[in-house]
Design a protein around this nucleic acid. Structure first.
Lengths: 287, 287
DNA sequence: ACCTGTCATACCCGCCAGGTATCACCACGT
DNA sequence: ACGTGGTGATACCTGGCGGGTATGACAGGT
């Protein structure tokens, strides 16, 4: 009577994202009429109008927005249940695959810390196998939520720790990376205001979830591009202190006095009860 | 192919909790054979053995334990989606019911703070209606997770804030409540060690999720009972400072130097994006 | 051996999810 | 005004599967 089925949620989320029954049906691999009917039934069962069908297209109502957000979370949770159960399967078969943890990391971030963590954990008795999955920083939270990863190394303030349990592992300041010859490169320390508006040297822009914020600086999408553009005297960047390890001879790093500190956390789904995870976290906080 | 249906999760959780197909089927309002078949199908689709059926009963495998935990979380999330969508429905109908927030509080805890919060929020422009739901402290997290509540006043260290966003609102120490005539009642301050083992005056025991920890003290399940037993000289209790407001003349409160401080938080589901909630939180942190 | 309690199997039925064909509607062209 | 294309809704049919009843297989307790 009042239990939403996963199928209905999948259907609604597809329609709400496409705002078009035909395209949503195609994405779901089905015909359009049964999809229309399913959504109508969903609205009747919830006693709520989810979509506003006016001529030419569909719009979400307030309740529809709520169901889109909550439904995505619910679908993530069920997908996580399936994935984690599959991975746990066979763990009790004698001599079967070892319990395995999937660790999501932003590529090249905190790799010193990561190396130490992996070495220390592997030395522990009864340690599980760790599969390291490099991904974009904006994907880490999604991976944890839908069960593709069990634990992640995250960096505030870029990652949000909302909804996860976490332990802080390290704190570092931020530096401005300038072309070696630049006048400001001679300074002992700089402020954010100093570097945010240098004439002829705009701050580089990173994509956030695939889209670039508007601004004058060049769009970069990997660290090598950034390094080159700085070396060529075309841009400046603000990065955490540990990025010094990949700087070139043509770069100069100057500490930023007022930039927010970057904190590396180990984070995991709040309800997780895995012994292997607990061991990894214990190892991490002891580093 | 690989999407778990809500129905399957409901079935499995019932079986995993009962560890008995017959009783689980009865609880689900269905016959036992289709339930057996559904679980078998689930195991085949996941490619994982969830239950160990030996003679006489059923036991969970490791994968089964994982699915029980993760499945409960997923079911909570879908139930929350349905409830919150229903409540959001009608909010856009002109002149319809105001947007409403459900606030879960432990009965009688932080009632001074609660009163100030409700008054201050009601004075805000565009404030939503607040429905206050009193409940046991162990139920608050469940209410937030399955959508019966939108926000809660929680108290560390008794509540766990795992999986929620929160803001700390107030910190208070703890006091020992003694019978007025007791020798220790003359002391200016006490330590936990002082009160944990007073001859003839054992610490009262509160239920945690309905069950009492073993121990010598009397079992109490509400504040009036506790007050009376203390007044009769049968027990001692350790409570937060704000509990002074309900003490009797026959009680004496003595501060505890080494008890962990009690922090009152306002907490809400981490993914929540409600404007009304944001307003309430803003009001709360300004108090 | 018997009975008892457990879960699995066999078989049947009715419902509903999904497909196809079509309609109703509106915004466009001209 | 009139087609025309593209939208979501309706009508109707069918197959699969979720669910019920009856029964089997098997292990313990007596």
């Amino acid at each position: 009577m009042d239990t939403l089925e996963t199928r209905e949620l999948r259907y609604f989320v597809a329609v709400a994202e496409e705002l078009h029954f035909g395209r949503a049906a195609e994405r779901l691999g089905m015909a359009q009429p049964p999809l229309s009917r399913a959504i109508q039934q969903l609205e009747r069962r919830l006693g709520v109008c989810l979509l506003e069908r006016n001529r030419r297209g569909v719009r979400l109502t307030g309740a529809g927005e709520v169901l889109l957000h909550e439904g995505r979370a619910a679908l993530d949770a069920t997908a996580a249940a399936a994935r984690r159960t599959r991975r746990a399967g066979g763990a009790d078969s004698p001599g079967g695959p070892r319990n395995r943890l999937v660790l999501a990391v932003k590529a090249a971030a905190s790799h010193e810390l990561l190396r130490k963590l992996l070495d220390a954990y592997a030395a522990e008795p009864d340690s599980a196998e760790i599969e390291v999955v490099p991904c974009a920083i904006s994907e880490q939270e999604e991976l944890l939520r839908d069960g593709r990863a069990d634990v992640a190394l995250m960096h505030t303030p870029w990652n949000s720790l909302a909804g996860f349990d976490s332990e802080a592992l390290a704190t570092e300041g931020q530096i401005a990376v300038l072309p070696a010859g630049h006048p400001l490169a001679a300074r002992k320390t700089l402020s954010l205001a100093d570097v945010s508006d240098i004439p002829g040297l705009p701050l580089a822009r990173w994509p956030t979830r695939g889209v670039y914020a508007p601004g004058p600086g060049p769009e970069v999408h990997n660290q090598t591009q950034l390094a080159q553009l700085i070396a060529l005297g075309r841009t400046v960047a603000v990065v955490p202190d540990s990025a010094r390890s990949w700087l070139w001879a043509e770069h100069t790093a100057v500490p930023l006095a007022d930039a927010p500190p970057v904190v590396t956390h180990i984070a995991w789904p709040a309800h997780s009860r895995s012994l292997a995870l607990a061991g990894l976290v214990r190892t991490a906080v002891r580093l």
